[in-house]
């Protein structure tokens, strides 16, 4: 038994499968970070809130999600949610995995937003409040617009990290890049897809990292 067909041969023959997988990966990561950002915003506001209960709950939420493996969270979402909440039975398998991804992402995003908000000089808040601006307007009009500069590049980095994390979704037979391995293993192609998959991940993360660097440069010009 030899090595079988070369990497190039496999890629040329099955590239639509890899393309579909890569698009699935980009889609899952985008959904996770997009909804994770919205949820993460809420969590970070809870963390910055003066109401003790909200602060404690949100801190626990973040600690649990950051302190346990994503794969475990996915298993819990996949097997426990449908049992615990029968009403969710009608949801697709994909949705359960996405819930885990979104929640996991929201924990990281909330830390990014909290850090971004805290990076804005306290004097800005004091100036706005001393003028009689409400807490809400101070946050929306004075602090957040300045925090965005720090938040945006970090969010983009979270998206890049999420691209790698979603590889675990393949475990649950969801069509993303890592899942293509399973499809081709059925055709007795074991090692070639792995290198192709690794190469595609590398290209995606490299291109996006470069994009983030451009974004950072653009944002720092306005300082």
């Amino acid at each position: 038994m030899g090595l079988g067909p070369s990497i190039i041969d496999v890629f040329l023959e099955y590239w639509p499968i890899f393309l579909k997988g890569a698009l699935g990966t980009l889609r899952f990561s985008f959904i996770a970070v997009f909804f994770g950002s919205i949820l993460g915003c809420l969590v970070s506001f809870m963390q910055l809130s003066k109401i003790k209960v909200l602060e404690v709950i949100s801190r626990a939420y973040v600690n649990i999600l950051r302190g346990t493996p994503l794969l475990v969270q996915m298993y819990i979402a996949y097997f426990f949610l449908p049992i615990a909440f029968p009403i969710m039975n009608s949801l697709s398998k994909e949705t359960y995995v996405l819930i885990a991804l979104i929640m996991n992402s929201s924990a990281y995003v909330s830390e990014i937003i909290r850090g971004g908000i805290n990076s804005v000089d306290i004097g800005q808040t004091e100036a706005a409040r001393s003028l009689g601006m409400t807490a809400k307007n101070t946050m929306l009009r004075i602090v957040l617009p300045q925090a965005v500069k720090n938040i945006l590049p970090a969010l983009a980095n979270e998206y890049i990290a999420m691209i790698k994390e979603t590889s675990m979704a393949g475990t649950f037979m969801l069509y993303e890049l890592m899942y293509t391995r399973v499809l081709l293993a059925n055709k007795f192609l074991i090692w070639q897809p792995l290198f192709i998959i690794a190469g595609i991940y590398l290209i995606m993360t490299t291109v996006l990292t470069y994009g983030v660097r451009m974004l950072e440069r653009r944002l720092s010009v306005s300082d």
Binding site: D121, G123, Q124, A127, R129, S130, L131, G132, I142, Q146
Partner: peptide, 22 residues
């Protein structure tokens, strides 16, 4: 919440200016 209304009547100038840079 009235504090905001009272603060409108109490101007403050800081050592570090605290103008809004954006």
């Amino acid at each position: 919440t009235n504090l905001n209304l009272h603060r409108q009547k109490i101007g403050m100038v800081f050592q570090q200016f605290n103008v809004f840079p954006h």
